[in-house]
Design a binder for these strands. Structure first.
Lengths: 331, 331
DNA sequence: CAACGCCACTGGAACGCTCCAGGAGCCCCT
DNA sequence: AGGGGCTCCTGGAGCGTTCCAGTGGCGTTG
């Protein structure tokens, strides 16, 4: 099938338009110094021939590919999808393409993908994963500008960080519960990672501020069962702030199974506004991160780094509270 | 910061090892015709210098980048994530990298991303999206080998297709309901797209085979309400086969809201074994597609096309039934 | 011992683009 | 009339690879 004939190059266009290849290059990139008449002619010819500029050749010659990479640990996590959407929209505004690498939640795969994306010649990388090893992150950052999403501390210098303000989010959740009249509020934690710790500490501080005792229960230590058992008793907790929506949803599930009325006997607040928060019944009250905005901000930081800005910064964005059906005044 | 010094090239390695750049190239690619002693020396030097081969230059010179592209319409769809995981694992086995493009469920974005991925110089593309316009698909297929996942008909020749056997899946669902003793089974459809049609037709055929009347209700025509109203009556349906899990979950939700006992008064079977099937209560009985296997098969087909195989084929893989809590014998 | 074949290695062209130094033509000013 | 400064355009070098046609040395063979 002759349609497989080699793709037209800049030289083909130049020949067909009767100009030099340099001029075609200038015209296509929209450079000044090309007369309008010639430019339109060249573009028409290019279009006619079905010319597409070869990114590989351009990247090789310019040292820039106009493509940024995004490394994601878990594709199926809607949080990641939204952040990626934000990144893409901002990149597109700047005329850059985006490719995504998928780490399948495994540190070694993640590191390999990161290398592979960099090898492809992207101009910069945004890492949306808390799981990437610090050394891999550091090594990558010496190769290209790198922006990290979500990890609360800038371990290596040279990387910028965008994250949601977990402390403030936890405070939002607790203010909500406190204003409903809850006093015996426990925290259900399932992870010791950075974001989870920030939320846990913020919980502790909010309780201290309100002069109330703080109690953290761990899922992997049977915390859920302990919580459910206690919440029947007169002195038991009337509300629970969970470290994330998955944990909250599981708790809700178990509570309903145990015949405990939610929210009448136990109020539950999650964190993340994940899809599951809308799917459970009653709907989960939760703290929402500004996911697209986080992505857009990450892209903005990366673009400025690509343009030569050497400063690495840490940006935190404000979360908000979404009230659904799992919170009410204690009865 | 002096770590930003230019990355070492093959020439640097050659100079450091005291050989020609051609020999370095051969050694690194594992070509024959390099003595063992020289090869190990070259590799050691390369490693020492932190040499990484430049994919852009290699792609330009060879016309092959050793990277395949995957175009996905919706990142957050776990179905897609699993297919991608399958693709990646197979590609990795063959020593190829993978980049993902994200179409955000919008045909025009999808088409633009596809072009962009192709521009990047990937050796082939796998499209995991039913939404891509046929023309865009066709245009892409003339540029590189292309494999389509999920769309049941090969519209343009030149593309291979991997899909789940929707007809057989629907038959599995109906066999299950029939063997439970159901006789009045309706189909609830929400889409007229290809996969949905295949399931709908298979429903009709299965009913005909069993000598039972087939009734298809459409969600967008108030089918859900009609179904719920009818299922109370003596002659009303005792079971429903939904076109996908989302539809099934919504039906389940409405049925429970209406005070209808599921599965006692109404059995429900979905399709896809999406995450939601596990999250609703009771868990949804559904047809599961072999998602990773589909991805692996797609990658296998693509690789053989890349290696010069000109045949385009259509492969269907067998689905399986996952029985959960929404099906029981009619009472 | 000359001829041959094979092995290990080399140098340069090519891939498709960008960038740079420079050239032709034109208008304006002195 | 001569020069200066535009604007519009050109040719060639260079980006880091791969590929191809050799080259030289060595062992085998008639």
């Amino acid at each position: 099938m002759s349609a497989d004939r080699a793709a037209p190059t800049i030289v083909d266009v130049a020949r067909a338009a009767g100009v030099s290849k340099s001029l075609v290059s200038l015209a296509i990139r929209g450079d000044v110094g090309v007369s309008d008449a010639t430019r339109t002619r060249i573009l028409a010819v290019a279009d006619d021939l079905g010319y597409r500029s070869n990114v590989l050749a351009r990247g090789l010659a310019r040292g820039r590919t106009q493509v940024i990479g995004v490394l994601v640990s878990d594709l199926s996590n809607p949080y990641h999808a939204d952040v990626v959407a934000g990144i893409e929209s901002r990149a597109l505004d700047a005329g850059l393409g985006t490719v995504i690498g998928h780490g399948r939640s495994r540190p070694e795969v993640l590191a390999a993908r990161l290398d592979q994306i960099l090898d492809l010649g992207v101009d910069g990388v945004i890492v949306v994963s808390a799981m990437l090893a610090a050394e891999a992150l550091d090594a990558a950052a010496t190769r290209r500008p790198l922006v990290m999403v979500g990890r609360p501390f800038t371990q290596p210098r040279r990387v910028s960080v965008v994250r949601n303000h977990d402390e403030r989010g936890a405070a939002l959740a607790l203010d909500h519960l406190l204003s409903l009249g809850h006093r015996r509020i426990v925290h259900l934690a399932s992870s010791r990672r950075a974001a989870a710790s920030a939320r846990r500490h913020a919980y502790g501080e909010a309780m201290t501020r309100a002069d109330l005792p703080a109690t953290t229960l761990w899922v992997d230590e049977g915390g859920t069962a302990a919580l459910l058992a206690a919440s029947g008793t007169p002195e038991g907790p009337t509300a629970c702030f969970a470290g994330n929506d998955r944990t909250a949803a599981a708790l809700l599930h178990d509570a309903l199974d145990a015949g405990l009325d939610v929210p009448a006997r136990l109020s539950i607040v999650g964190y993340d506004d994940a899809q599951i928060a809308r799917q459970v019944r009653p709907g989960l009250t939760t703290v929402a991160q500004p996911r697209e905005a986080i992505g857009r901000e990450a892209a903005r930081l990366l673009l400025s780094r690509i343009d030569g800005d050497r400063d690495t910064v840490e940006v935190t964005l404000e979360p908000s509270l979404t009230v659904r059906g799992t919170t009410a005044a204690p009865c």
